[in-house]
């Protein structure tokens, strides 16, 4: 349904031109002031030693960019981010789809009750729930260890700190995917399913052969939206681990935040941001490519 609007009436009324111009001028002014200009400023800044506190703005050439690519911390942060994003996206899609599919089943009553439960974490503010989870992960009195009868120092053990952040993210986000999937499931053509049922396809077969292919655009949507937002995650890191133990939970955006607003290396932080931007652009393009979709609409 890409371009339904075909021919427009040939006459342009004065009010149409006025309305259009007001909207376009405001729109362009806004995007220039708050996106284009900042992006250009950041791009220029990435070639400078830029510290607003010391009023430094000295040309460095490619030094910041070289520093990005030679920084061990950047690459390890990038690796953590990729692991984090892939794991969180995978669970978000799988759990969301599973929950949606289960709720779609005709044998389940009280659908809205379950939907309400699963969607609850999504609507609560991240800063607040991250605090709750900080206590849940506590090795001495935390809920998780007590429930599972284990003894893991979740946030201070290098093996578990990143998984802990992933667990929190999945818990908070899978409900969103579920609701979106559920909406898509209801809009799928019913006759396909009836035909499949007549052909004797089992529930599993229907899911794999019919539902998932039909839901491909929705899956793609969730994957892309999630990737973009997970590459920019930093609040759980800030609240739970501050990047620790050591640098084991440094995610790139947390690193950028620290460079920019703790160390005030605006130039280096800008260069880092652009590299992350390129990564996101490439990943998004790649997602489109493997899904074979041309556009989201």
């Amino acid at each position: 349904m890409a371009l339904i609007n075909r021919t427009r009436h040939p006459l342009r009324s004065r009010s149409e031109i006025i309305f259009r111009n007001i909207v376009i001028v405001l729109l362009i002014a806004f995007f220039v002031l708050f996106f284009v200009l900042p992006i250009i400023m950041a791009l220029i800044g990435s070639f400078y030693q830029w510290n607003p506190l010391r009023l430094q703005f000295n040309f460095l050439g490619l030094d910041n960019w070289k520093k990005v690519f030679t920084s061990k911390l950047f690459w390890s942060s990038m690796w953590h981010t990729v692991v984090f994003a892939l794991a969180a996206v995978a669970f978000r899609v799988v759990l969301g789809l599973a929950a949606a599919h289960a709720l779609y089943s005709r044998s389940i009553k009280h659908k809205s009750f379950y939907r309400t439960l699963y969607y609850l974490p999504t609507i609560t503010p991240m800063v607040a729930v991250a605090f709750v989870w900080k206590f849940i992960f506590d090795p001495q009195f935390g809920l998780l260890n007590h429930l599972l009868g284990i003894d893991i120092n979740w946030l201070f053990d290098g093996k578990y700190a990143l998984p802990a952040i992933i667990i929190l993210t999945i818990w908070k986000d899978f409900g969103f995917a579920m609701v979106i999937f559920l909406g898509s499931l209801y809009s799928l053509p019913k006759d396909c399913y009836e035909a499949a049922e007549i052909d004797g396809a089992g529930a599993w077969q229907r899911l794999v052969k019919l539902t998932i292919p039909l839901l491909r655009p929705t899956i793609l949507f969730i994957v892309i939206v999630s990737l973009i937002s997970y590459f920019q995650t930093y609040i759980p890191v800030m609240v739970l681990t501050q990047g620790g133990p050591g640098t084991q939970t440094y995610l790139v955006t947390y690193m950028i935040y620290e460079e920019a607003f703790v160390k005030y290396n605006f130039g280096y932080a800008s260069a880092l941001s652009f590299v992350v931007f390129l990564f996101i652009a490439v990943l998004t393009g790649f997602s489109f490519k493997i899904s074979g979709e041309r556009s989201l609409s």
């Binding site: 506590d138 090795p139 001495q140 003894d151 893991i152 120092n153 946030l155 201070f156 053990d157």
Partner: peptide, 16 residues
């Protein structure tokens, strides 16, 4: 122990 409390100052205050 490395896993007995995460902030020795607070844990000292808490009697651990």
């Amino acid at each position: 122990d490395y896993n007995f409390g995460n902030n020795s100052g607070d844990n000292f205050g808490q009697g651990m």
